[in-house]
Design a protein around this nucleic acid. Structure first.
Lengths: 121, 121
DNA sequence: TGATTGGTTAAGCATGTGCTTAAGTATAGC
DNA sequence: GCTATACTTAAGCACATGCTTAACCAATCA
């Protein structure tokens, strides 16, 4: 069982390679076989399989084998974990700027301090 | 001069480590010194410096030294590059589902095909 | 001035990553 | 059954990563 932090590690790690991002970009268009996935990439099939393994580990891709062909599909909700982490940081950042702005405002107009968190008087 | 793809590599790579994410989480609260950054982390200062170097390489963090203390601050627009990549994939994914849905619709009501991209007749 | 604080550099080491080639297995088609 | 196709496994290799300790430098501070 794997915690959130490990999940984020794996997801960002998976995204940190342009071949894997290319594979994902292909997969959002719809499911494909491994060799289809491999075609545009300048590397051997085993190399592609290894990238695929990374993507599957991270949960970004799922695949199943039917007959002799393995079909891969993207798992888009796995992306949202990463997205959420980034969004949270941004939100915190913006809140900080708001607080900062409010504080600077109280410095300009010293008589009416902003609501609540003023060291009053 | 470094291309978009390398930038994404570096950014996602930088995010793919929980210590570095912790550093960023600290930095959205406001600028701090290196040793301040290091305090909550269970590792030596040089190790923290190395993480900091990764974050700076990626453009996610900037720092400057005044006297003997180096102050680090986050560069939030660097995050948006990563965010945009993810968002684009998700958007493409949703468009694909739309097209798929529309197509399935034409199968249900064969007489009026959707606008434009029907293999008509 | 001499010690302390805050950071930096260098070296070394274990482990991980991204690839390769070579050989193997399991369908699918003839 | 024989062969081509579509992976799959294994081994090996170069280089990157994440850490460590030891030594070093440069601003404060007593």
């Amino acid at each position: 069982m794997l915690n959130q932090s490990t999940r984020l590690d794996q997801t960002f790690q998976a995204l940190a390679d342009s071949s894997r991002r290319a594979m994902l970009a292909r997969l959002v268009q719809g499911p494909v076989s491994v060799s289809e996935l491999a075609r545009p990439l300048a590397m051997s099939l085993p190399a592609v399989m290894q990238h695929l393994a990374v993507l599957e580990e991270s949960g970004l891709v799922r695949s199943e084998k039917i007959g002799r062909v393995r079909t891969c599909r993207i798992e888009p909700q796995a992306l949202s974990l990463a997205e959420q982490w980034i969004n949270q940081r941004r939100t915190e950042w913006e809140h900080r700027l708001d607080r900062l702005g409010a504080y600077l405002e109280t410095l300009k107009n010293p008589d009416h301090e902003g609501d609540s968190h003023g060291k009053s008087k």
